[in-house]
Computed example of a mutant assay.
Amino acid sequence: MKLSDYAKKAGISYRTAWRWWKQGNLTGYQLPSGTIIITSEAIEDNLKPDLIACIYARVSSAQNKDNLDRQAERL
């Protein structure tokens, strides 16, 4: 897979993918034309999703604190 395709699939910029390749964090090779090819082992290892969720609830004043608890429970 080309480095640009890998970057799109990983959700990162091409520049970040290129930097990772230069640092040795991605396994691949460079063709004589300059195209960087990332091997399939690197693709499977580096595209494991790290799922993070954040819940945010707020109310306009301390008088509505009961609403805050209900919002948090509902979320």
Score class of each variant (00 low, 15 high):
I55F: 12
D45N: 12
A53V: 13
R70Y: 14
A57K: 06
K8H: 14
A42E: 02
R19L: 11
A7G: 00
A42P: 02
W21C: 13
A62D: 06
E41D: 09
L68M: 04
L26V: 04
Q63T: 03
M1A: 12
E44N: 06
A72W: 12
W20T: 10
S4K: 14
L3F: 01
S4E: 14
Q23L: 08
E73Q: 09
A10T: 02
E44V: 10
I55D: 10
K22Y: 00
G11S: 06
I12V: 09
T39R: 11
A72R: 13
Q63F: 07
G24N: 09
L68T: 01
L3H: 01
S13D: 05
I55A: 13
A7P: 00
D5G: 06
T39L: 11
E44T: 11
S13P: 03
C54G: 15
I55R: 15
L31A: 05
K48E: 06
A53T: 13
I38F: 04
R70Q: 15
N46F: 00
K9F: 08
A57I: 09
Y14T: 10
V59Q: 02
S13G: 07
L51I: 15
N64C: 11
K9T: 06
A57G: 10
Y6H: 01
I37N: 08
D69T: 14
R70A: 15
C54W: 13
G11N: 08
I36H: 05
R15M: 10
Y6G: 02
N25C: 08
I55Y: 13
Y56D: 03
W18D: 13
S40E: 14
E73M: 04
A7I: 00
L26D: 04
L26G: 03
I37E: 11
I36F: 08
S61T: 07
R15L: 08
W18N: 14
A53G: 11
T39K: 11
